[in-house]
């Protein structure tokens, strides 16, 4: 007769990846500043990226046009594929942060994406400055980030902040209110 705990090796590996150790009772353990900060960072990132994603998911054509404005990619299948996929990845990362599933994978994804955003926004800012003799603080455009047109310096600052939060989440171990916990 098969024992209930008789996991096959594959199942066990999956279980190790996802579930171990069992969830602690988050409320009975002392919360330190790090726990609060990690939760705060998760909620901020989740709110920002879920909001941004919803604006773009239903308008891939418009989002593609916004990406095209950067003059890095021409209209091509790649551009459309980015416009289709990127908002969904943002949404999934947001969900990951809220539920606490795959927090590290999500923060790594967002860290990489934010570095990319900062790079392309800086590139576009520079090209606008060169073409129009505008000073850095006056560069104003719609970055296609999902929040409408804004000053480039503000956007760069925001994205640097988001990048910082993602990196902190990537390296922190003090998570509370998570559905799945990785083995440390």
């Amino acid at each position: 007769m098969r024992d209930k705990n008789d996991f096959s090796e594959g199942t066990l590996a999956l279980k190790n990846l996802l579930l171990e150790p069992p969830m602690e009772n988050s409320l009975n353990i002392r919360w330190t500043f790090r726990h609060y900060f990690a939760l705060f960072a998760r909620l901020v990132l989740a709110a920002v990226f879920i909001y941004a994603a919803f604006g773009k998911i239903n308008n891939p054509l418009i989002f593609a046009e916004e990406i095209r404005m950067y003059e890095i990619l021409d209209l091509s299948p790649l551009l459309y594929i980015i416009a289709i996929v990127l908002p969904w990845v943002e949404l999934l990362c947001g969900i990951a942060f809220i539920t606490g599933i795959f927090i590290r994978g999500a923060s790594f994804t967002l860290a990489i994406m934010n570095m990319g955003f900062i790079a392309v926004i800086a590139y576009r800012t520079l090209s606008i400055m060169n073409s129009g003799d505008t000073s850095f603080l006056n560069v104003f455009f719609d970055c296609g980030c999902g929040f409408g047109p804004t000053y480039a310096w503000k956007k760069l600052l925001e994205d640097t902040g988001l990048l910082g939060l993602s990196l902190i989440l990537l390296f922190t171990r003090e998570h509370r209110f998570v559905l799945l916990r990785l083995r440390k």
Binding site: L17, V89, L92, C93, A96, F102, R104, G105, A106, F108, T109, L170
Partner: peptide, 8 residues
């Protein structure tokens, strides 16, 4: 981390 990212 990488596996999680690939899954996402």
């Amino acid at each position: 981390t990488i596996i999680q990212m690939v899954v996402i």
